[in-house]
Amino acid sequence: MDILYKIFIDPFVQMGTAPDLLVQTLWDGLVAGVLYALIALGFVLIFKASGVFNFAQGIMVVFAALTLVGLHEHGVPAFVALGLTVLVMLVLAVGVERLMLRPLVNQSSIILFMATFGLTYFLIGAGQIVFGGSPKVMIASDLFLPSGAIEFKGLGGFVSLQKIDIAAVIIASVMVGVLAVFFQRTRIGRALRAVADSHQAALSVGISLEQIWVIVWFAAGVVAIATGILWGARSEVSFALQIIALKALPVLVLGGLTSIPGAIVGGLIIGIGEKLGEFYWGPLLGGGIENWLAYVIALGVLVFRPQGLFGEKIIERI
């Protein structure tokens, strides 16, 4: 009886008696959700254009953040370093297209997927050689990212909003919005969808496969820079940031691999859901549940919608 009370009654009593903590949890969940959406977006862009799940997205985040901080450590001013990092991600996109994707045109998606494994290990090695493995501090203040917190008293306590989190939500929302419009409403966006459906058909109507691939890999690179800056500012810039990219997996399962709105909604559901779950129900299970809770939430959706919330229903003739 006691356990039933703790599961079904107590969390809601807590929400009522300490609304400040409920609002704080929802805010933290929202921040996490927007950042997860940003990571998931990197995966979705590339999947939409090439039908390949880019295993290297996580290390691209690390590589972008290390490039930015590494350049700054060598005396390059912060915004120049940011510009150069964007350039490096463009070079990477061109390199990936020329050296990895072009020789693999019309190969099955599993081949392309395995190629991204290779790219991951290449970037780990290259990053390690160039920047070393020591953690670095993100140059948040040099990039004029705010620090400190805004505290609201009330609701029986206080709600603290970190200024960096507010900035993260704004930056991530703007990026997600711009990319969503760019890829949904422009000619390039339509071309991208055509490429995703069939490489050969897209080529036959004059769409440049190479150009599309460079664009999406570059866009994923820019997303990686933003992700690296925002996550790096919350912790440190190190190879541990790769792990954060794994948080996109349940988001993608939930939102579908091909949907930009799916990445956004999935990110928010996972972010808010796991924070509420960890805070109110986690202590019942000894804590530390949010890592697998995200997958449980995603699996719960899969039972009813195997293609995810916004994924395309694939019907194949047998």
Partner: peptide, 22 residues
């Protein structure tokens, strides 16, 4: 009170520290 941090959550501890705040 025990507050475990799974390896995959190393850089994502906001919920845990809310537990601490509570």
């Amino acid at each position: 009170k025990l507050y475990p941090v799974p390896g995959a959550q190393m850089q994502n501890q906001t919920a845990l520290w809310l537990d601490v705040r509570r």
